[in-house]
Amino acid sequence: MFNIATILVLVLLAVTFIQSAYDKTMYWKDNLDWLKGHFAATPIKNMVPFSLFLILILELISGILCISGCIELLINNGRTFGLYGAIFSCITLIFLLVGQRMAKDYDGARTIVIYFIPAVMACYWLS
């Protein structure tokens, strides 16, 4: 039970990113259409499909590493995969934050920071 807080944060991050990646995959066109409008007045307006794909990959890596980290913590108290999952989660969230700030979506950016705090906590606990 020593790692319960860490496991719970890794589960939160895994659910967040795997659900988001699932939505992006299943509703690619809808997401792409909405994001093209969202980023129409930004420097990345012509890179929205690539950016969406990059975020999808980062979310999958983050989610898979967080799940692997939970399993590793439960099986042998190892911290490697969890730490990498937390780090990738932070990187993914920073990418998302930059996009929201570019689009001047400050409420969206604030929401991302709410996820960033537990991700940084997981980095701290697992390092």
Rank of each mutant, 00 (worst) to 15 (best):
I75T: 03
P118C: 13
I57M: 14
D105C: 01
S62L: 05
A122Q: 11
T80Q: 12
N46A: 10
L35I: 07
I67Q: 05
L93M: 06
A109Q: 10
K29P: 05
T111E: 13
L35M: 15
L58K: 00
T111G: 12
T80F: 07
M121R: 06
I71K: 06
K104S: 01
S89D: 09
I44E: 00
L56T: 11
L58M: 11
I117N: 03
I57F: 14
C70K: 00
A109W: 15
F81P: 08
L35Q: 15
M26V: 14
A109P: 12
I55G: 02
T80G: 10
P43T: 06
W28H: 14
A86N: 02
R79C: 07
G85L: 05
L60I: 05
L35H: 14
L96D: 11
H38L: 07
D33T: 15
K104R: 11
H38T: 05
D105W: 02
L32P: 08
F50A: 08
I117D: 09
N77R: 11
C70W: 07
M26T: 15
T25A: 15
L32Q: 12
I75V: 12
G63W: 11
A86Y: 11
I94W: 03
K104Q: 10
T25H: 14
K29C: 06
C66G: 11
D33C: 08
A122M: 13
G37W: 10
Y106A: 01
K24P: 06
E59T: 00
G69I: 08
L65W: 01
L73M: 13
F39A: 08
I71G: 03
C70N: 05
Y27N: 15
Y115S: 10
A122W: 15
L60V: 02
Y115H: 12
K45A: 12
G63L: 09
E59L: 08
L96Y: 13
A40P: 09
P118T: 13
R101N: 09
L96R: 10
V48M: 04
